[in-house]
Design a protein around this nucleic acid. Structure first.
Length: 700
DNA sequence: GGTTAGCGGTTTTTT
DNA sequence: ACCGCTAACC
């Protein structure tokens, strides 16, 4: 290795605003970082600067939006520190709010009455438990339809995360459920009790208990309730809140515009004075209001921490000027906006292309053609991405990519871990790990023939009453249909409870039992069975069963291909992603598909002006991922999955009104049957024809 | 009484 | 592909 660098050498790579932020002293710091302004680089340098200046890495907390983002930042910080001859970034506390909460609660939760071995329910599990209570209380069969489990969960979750009273949540976000206010209160109390009885926390609890930890709220076997506001103070001798507060000298928070009220309150409790506190964000990229995130957190930061320093990063390093022109104008139409003037020194470049497609088939053809051209021109597939509003928008494209033999990874949407058969398999492990887990049990038992929701419930209640001892099930006389399976089922679970077997061995035993059941229950058996084998392979990555279950819920593999591990490093693949999952990333070429009004903005999200504004920011996030080439496609007709009729939209996205068209080149691709060489008056298409011609010349 | 199969309507984004 | 409902079935 070359001779060591100094910290000044490293900082020389930053512009003056970035350097100001990276080397800011102790006071609270807000970095307002527009899209592509080197926010990550700035944060990474700040971490390195802090550590090089003597801050103990293990006393730094880095809160990010995904675990992947945390890992990436720490990796880059480590590289910088290595050049200084001063490694150690690996000891930084990095992760999402939820992951850090889990870590802290495992270590300190006892002080507020939390069992040390709590399990964590993901969103689907939580909905299922909500449904258990919903049927318990006879709310499932009411004259006027009671809100569905997902809606109930959404209401509950918003009350918790926005720290808002149920009444006001209903009034502001779920007015059609207001008639059920009293029933919902009962439901939510029942839900909280059920969680406690099962020894389980949901995502919201992780934040809630972290908050409670910081406020010394002795839980005394009582879960935090729905109502916001401080709970009575405990008489704890040690003041666990001070202990946790004392863990960190510096706190850095990324994507602050997408934090919710509860997360902000955690921050305020964690760092009352804002000493050593850095938050980074961009109000123009706030896209998680549906998850109760509020842009107020970033806007009110200076009010909450008077004397906070604000540094604004405005020089964009990502995109060419023509792309930046277009994105600046798109966001300029936002109703409310805190002006940043993004500028770039990268003046040359192709103007963004607006592609008016006949239908989604045309769109797929067009996108694939462009992707191949760019690859021919030396832009690897992994430097290109297709972005869309909803996961199912890419179905047709996926089929066409497969047909064209173009490898791709899809991010966002239904994850591997959320598919029915994987959840089934995991439920065996979960029930063995925690026999009080109602959700796991109510999922497993009805897999057996002759056992439905009713019998499953009775069996789970009996198991719960027996303190989780599976022997109570051994005496049960199963219906004839399950006569042979039942003893095997019980002995499988009993053997899993206290087993010394390696995880893959455990999974193999479960799979042997489960595979025949799967075959009778689902179609597409083959790929599902392969998934289960896959799961068995990756199980060896985890230290133990509890660890695997925990990490699978907190940090599920984000694309199916992630599961295959890191075998082919030189493997080149295209990225398909929901816009939400594309946050913070960038590619040389970006294709935004289905930019028709109804998909962007989504029909589901146009109930009020706030929602529409969020959709606009979402579109802005999509466009600003592009470095050199940007294509926006809008087919006005397409097939909904599972629907035979063609759906037609009226127009391209409303976020590109005619007044903005001067920022774009327009293109109407030829229809596939119209022949390859018809002129269509589009310079990008002309270029594409030339490339194709050149490719043909290769083999004469 | 409880289970299951079959049918019709619906499907956003995610820690 | 999944949920909830209904009607047949044990």
């Amino acid at each position: 290795m070359a001779e060591l660098a100094t910290i000044d050498d490293l900082l020389a790579g930053l512009n003056s605003q970035q350097r100001t932020a990276a080397t800011h002293g102790e006071g609270p710091l807000l970095i307002v970082a527009g899209a592509g302004t080197g926010k990550t680089a700035t944060l990474v340098h700040r971490v390195a600067w802090l550590i090089a200046g003597g801050v103990d890495p293990s006393r730094i907390l880095l809160l990010t939006f995904t675990r992947r983002a945390a890992a990436e930042m720490l990796r880059r910080a480590e590289i910088l520190l290595h050049r200084l001859g001063h490694p150690g970034a690996g000891r930084v506390w990095g992760g999402t709010y939820h992951a850090i909460a889990t870590r802290l609660l495992h270590r300190y939760g006892k002080a507020i009455g939390l069992p040390p071995d709590f399990a964590v329910h993901d969103r689907a599990d939580s909905e299922d438990l909500m449904n258990v209570v919903r049927t318990d209380l006879n709310l499932a069969k009411t004259d006027k339809r009671f809100p569905k489990k997902g809606t109930c969960m959404a209401i509950y979750s918003r009350a918790v995360n926005a720290r808002e009273k149920l009444e006001s949540v209903l009034e502001n976000h779920f007015p059609w459920c207001e008639d059920w206010r009293e029933e919902l209160k009962l439901l939510f109390n029942g839900y909280v009790d059920r969680k406690e009885a099962a020894g389980v926390l949901d995502y919201d609890d992780l934040l809630l208990y972290w908050h409670a930890l910081l406020n010394d709220e002795a839980a005394s076997a009582e879960s935090p309730r729905l109502q916001p506001g401080p709970l009575p103070k405990g008489e704890g001798k040690k003041r666990v809140g001070d202990v946790v507060r004392g863990l960190f000298d510096c706190i850095l928070i990324d994507e602050f515009q997408d934090t919710n009220t509860l997360q902000a309150e955690i921050l305020y409790a964690l760092s009352p004075e804002g000493k050593g506190l850095t938050v980074v964000g961009d109000d123009a990229q706030s896209i998680y209001a549906f998850r109760a995130a509020t842009v107020r957190n970033i806007l009110d930061f200076p009010k909450h921490y008077p004397g906070a320093t604000i540094v604004t990063l405005e020089q964009n390093y990502r995109s060419t000027e023509p792309i930046l022109d277009a994105t600046n104008q798109v966001i300029a139409l936002a109703r409310e906006r805190y002006t940043k003037n993004l500028w770039s020194e990268r003046t040359e470049g192709q103007r963004p292309v607006l592609v008016n497609c006949e239908d989604d088939g045309d769109q797929a053809t067009y996108v694939i053609r462009r992707i191949l051209e760019h690859r021919e021109a030396g832009i690897d597939l992994r430097r290109q991405a297709v972005l869309f509003r909803a996961s199912h928008h890419s179905i047709l494209l996926e089929a066409e990519l497969a047909r064209a033999n173009i490898p791709f990874h899809k991010y966002g949407g239904l994850k591997f871990i959320e598919t029915a058969h994987v959840k089934d398999l995991m439920a065996f492990l979960r029930l063995a790990e925690n026999p009080r887990d109602m959700v796991a049990g109510s999922r497993l038992l009805p897999l057996l023939p002759g056992v439905g929701p009713g019998k499953a419930r009775q069996l789970m209640d009996a198991l719960l009453a027996a303190g989780g001892n599976f022997d109570v099930w051994a005496d049960w006389r199963p219906p004839a249909a399950a006569a042979t399976l039942w003893p095997k089922f019980v002995s499988l679970l009993k053997s899993l409870v206290r087993t010394a077997d390696e995880l893959p061995v455990q999974l193999n035993r479960v799979r042997k039992f489960y595979a025949p059941l799967l075959e009778g229950k689902y179609d597409h058996v083959e790929p599902r069975l392969r998934d289960l084998e896959q799961l068995e392979l990756i199980a060896s990555r985890y230290r133990n069963r509890a660890r695997m279950l925990l990490e699978m819920t907190l940090d599920p593999p984000s694309s199916t291909q992630d599961l295959a591990g890191p075998p082919q490093l030189d493997d080149d693949y295209l990225v398909l992603s929901t816009i939400h999952s594309a946050k913070g990333l960038e590619w040389d070429a970006v294709y935004v598909i289905h930019a028709a009004d109804g998909n962007i903005p989504s029909d589901m999200a146009t109930k009020n002006p706030e929602e529409i504004e969020e959709e606009r920011r979402l579109f802005y996030v999509a466009l600003t991922r592009a470095k050199n080439w940007l294509y926006v496609c809008y087919p006005l007709r397409y097939y909904y999955p599972g629907r035979s009729d063609r759906h037609t939209f009226a127009q391209r996205t409303r976020f590109l009104p005619s007044a903005l068209l001067h920022c774009f080149d327009q293109c109407v691709p030829e229809t596939p049957d119209a022949g390859d060489d018809g002129a269509d008056g589009c310079s990008a298409c002309d270029a594409s024809r030339q490339v194709r011609r050149r490719i043909r010349e290769l083999w004469g």
